[in-house]
């Protein structure tokens, strides 16, 4: 349901992605691993429309690469960037709600989505009223996940969600992903990580990015 066809991305004159062909099935959980600087972030940003690319991306029957970047979340794509990118002037809850408000969800719809977010990430409830600028880096990762959950009904992309999390928080975060996986079998998950061990337990499929090419990992554990 997500297909990259001959996708090439150049940044500062260097080809970061080279003629990538990739198919990701609906409802799958995919780990995208690679060394620092390999192009994991670039791949997710390209799917969000934040880079100049050639080639074509299809998603859910539409040519995603022709859709304006700001309209992509509305197709059901949630994205949590590597560096959180919360809006510091708003509360945690306002941050999480915002994609839903932008997409024009009804109050009832939004309330239901928020319910689901708090069910998956109960620790967000305690900090709901805090300004997003006043949460720690790790907590901010949780908020960014919550924000991606609100809009990501079909595809959720998380860029290095475990990076910088203390073990306890990393556990909670992993729990949240597991809960999400169990509750919502439809949604497709793409998670990048520079430490492949962290995602072994989750991912049904592991992709490795290297020298601008994306290929299947030689061995991967399927736990479903």
């Amino acid at each position: 349901m997500l297909t990259l066809k001959d996708v090439t991305v150049r940044l500062g004159g260097v080809r970061i992605l080279r003629n990538v062909d990739l198919k990701i099935e609906k409802s799958s959980t995919v780990a995208l691993i690679g060394a620092n600087g390999a192009g994991k972030t670039t791949t997710l940003r390209t799917i969000m429309g934040l880079t100049e690319m050639t080639g074509q991306i299809e998603f859910d029957g539409a040519v995603l690469s022709k859709v304006a970047p700001s309209r992509r979340p509305g197709l059901g794509i949630g994205y949590a960037a590597e560096d959180r990118r919360l809006f510091s002037g708003f509360t945690v809850e306002e941050n999480i709600k915002m994609p839903g408000q932008v997409a024009g969800y009804s109050d009832a719809d939004l309330a239901a989505k928020m319910e689901r977010v708090y069910e998956i990430l109960p620790e967000l409830k305690e900090m709901a009223k805090r300004p997003a600028g006043a949460v720690s880096g790790g907590q901010g990762k949780m908020v960014a996940l919550g924000r991606a959950l609100v809009i990501g009904s079909k595809l959720i992309m998380l860029d290095e969600p475990f990076q910088g999390l203390a073990p306890a928080l990393a556990h909670k975060y992993a729990d949240a992903l597991r809960k999400l996986r169990n509750r919502d079998r439809e949604v497709t998950l793409i998670i990048t990580e520079s430490n492949p061990d962290l995602l072994r337990k989750f991912a049904e499929r592991t992709l490795v990015i290297e020298r601008g090419e994306i290929r299947e990992a030689r061995s991967h554990i399927t736990t479903g």
Binding site: L50, S70, A81, R85, L86, F87, I151
Partner: peptide
Amino acid sequence: EAAITIGIDA
């Protein structure tokens, strides 16, 4: 950019 990724038409 973050605004765009949550669907805001900047």
